[in-house]
Design a protein around this nucleic acid. Structure first.
Lengths: 342, 342
DNA sequence: GTGAAAGCGCTAACAG
DNA sequence: CTGTTAGCGCTTTCAC
């Protein structure tokens, strides 16, 4: 593998000149440039990134940390993040936390500090205090969880208002017994808390009582959890006629339970989700859901990180103010709440 | 950020000694070791990975290149690969090719050479010649595509025999008009070719004629493509009563089309897929499919890469023989071909 | 057992 | 415009 020195020797110039050409420095005599470019090509020169990184103090890599890549929401998000990062010349390293608090904490404490220039992180198990106790100085952008007063950039949809709107949609269809699937008892999980709060607001706005019996907590957010929770709700003496699931996977699991019991959706039970994953656009019936603008979230996250990395490089430290950005969302009404007609 | 030198100064020893301690070198006097460990802790020392990488000539990172991360099969695979890699102390960088030949070729030509120690690659658009023309020496493991005589490690299920078995399953149910969705005209895509070959073998074994009319090519392998292809098949004068889709996403799309035309699955049309993605376990009806052992594929891929990287480090070059490994698969018969009873 | 010193390949002052 | 040179932080002979 040819080094700068080899190329310099071959072209009969100094290392610096080769470096200048490689890095597109403007003031190089065109004759010299040609010579160098020839040598570069002949030797098939490729810069040693470890050396460059060592010298420049950067890595060209950002990390994306999510609970699990095989949850469609995160897969879709990761796709967009990788794309947005590539457009800015970054490579993306993926970390999976499995929603385990210890692993999430490790990230905050800098396991990746030496390997990446920045971190985009979608936490589920940690809280505000963990964030405050952070020692690592790597630029960080949080996704999805609104950590108030947090000293951190973050971007998310307004979970609470989206949940409220969805509940209002169900109430608007005439439903009076509206269940919820996906409440979480464990700490952290701000998202679940916000969606639950929105659900309660939506009920209140429609003049409906909040009935704890209709709220099914789940251990996680996978299809199996939704299926199981729905079984519990259907076993009630007076089951709900509509359910708002806190994500689409739960909703798809719930859907499966309802249908496999010989009931119809939405005629017997209406089902709504959250995330707008592609599955829900092809399920039968198609799934009513909240659609966050994932491309926007991803793009903004990368931009925020870019800005912050730049700031860190420029100023000494802690310069740029933290930005909290709200991503847009839409309510997508599909068959699972209004049937074929709608 | 503290460097080895800082730690050495503080502990009153040489840089070498600190390095010895950090790297777990055995012959260090216990008193010295304690002093050093104290200094290490006090300064919160963390090795600079760029420097270490430069010196050691490795990065601790492997790349996983897939067409798109939001296709559930690849998301599930990526999850397993990242997990297996983490167990061996590797970080994983993800590249998305979108199935674009130029991007796939770039990878083969070493865009990531300087950034990773090895590459696990699931190609769709390139062929044997591209592989042969490879200049980059980075250890490589191919996934899913059987490139005969290729000078490359690879791991895959036996696509052809799996496809044959699935077709036999459909024929065994008494179907005589069995369609196929997902044939590909473009070069590369060995997987599609193999599955198509298996389908033909399955028909032949059942004494059924091969009818080109029943084979629907698709531009890609997403739900929308399956839905569209199914519409074409259903529009035939004599539509198939069973279809084998070359992956689960196509099958889910096809399912949607069939159901939305008021037909029943499997009574009117039986539908089978390939990949065993989680969606198919919760769709209504649940999806009959070929289930490759993805964990096994991922784990083996990482092992193969590990071995090859080691070999490259040890021997000068081209030492270890190439290994072609066949991953196990199972036929999962579910509702979409045999109904509730099965 | 430990230290001194060279050098991985690159960039960036600083000269000229 | 181009060359010389000093490190970035680490590992690793080679002495002692």
């Amino acid at each position: 593998m040819a080094s700068l020195k080899d190329v310099a020797q071959r072209a009969g110039v100094s290392v610096k000149t080769v470096s200048n050409v490689v890095n597109g420095y403007a003031y190089v005599a065109s004759g010299t440039r040609e010579k160098v470019e020839l040598a570069l090509a002949e030797l098939d020169y490729r810069p040693n990134l470890s050396a460059r990184n060592l010298r420049r103090g950067r890595t060209g890599v950002i990390a994306l940390a999510v609970p699990e890549l095989d949850a469609p929401y995160f897969a879709e998000l990761a796709r967009s993040v990788i794309k947005a990062a590539a457009e800015r010349g970054w490579m993306v390293l993926i970390d999976q936390t499995d929603g385990v608090a210890a692993r999430e904490r490790e990230l905050l404490q800098g396991v990746r500090e030496q390997s990446v220039d920045g971190l985009i992180f979608s936490p589920v198990a940690i809280g505000r205090d963990d964030l405050a106790a952070r020692t690592d100085a790597t630029p960080l952008v949080l996704l999805g969880e609104r950590v108030l007063d947090g000293p951190t950039d973050h971007i998310a949809v307004d979970n609470q208002s989206a949940a409220r709107e969805m509940t209002a949609h169900l109430a608007g269809l005439g439903h009076t017994r509206i269940g919820a699937i996906g409440a979480q008892h464990r700490p952290g999980m701000g998202t679940a808390r916000l969606r639950l709060a929105g659900y309660r607001e939506g009920l209140a706005a429609a003049g409906l009582p909040y009935d704890e019996e209709l709220v099914a907590p789940t251990p996680a957010y996978r299809r199996a959890d939704g299926a199981e929770a729905m079984r519990r709700l259907l076993a009630l003496p007076e089951p709900p006629r509509a359910v708002f699931c806190f994500n689409d996977l739960l909703a798809l699991g719930a859907l499966r339970t309802v249908l496999s019991q010989g009931l119809r959706v939405p005629e017997d039970v209406a089902v709504a989700g959250f995330d707008d994953i592609e599955d829900g656009r092809y399920s039968t019936p198609t799934l009513t859901t909240v659609s966050p603008d994932k491309d926007r979230v991803a793009k903004t996250a990368v931009e925020l990180l870019d800005t912050r990395i730049d700031a860190g490089r420029r100023a000494g430290r802690g310069a740029a103010a933290c930005r909290e950005i709200e991503a847009p969302y839409r309510l997508l009404v599909r068959e699972s709440t209004v049937g074929r007609a709608g």
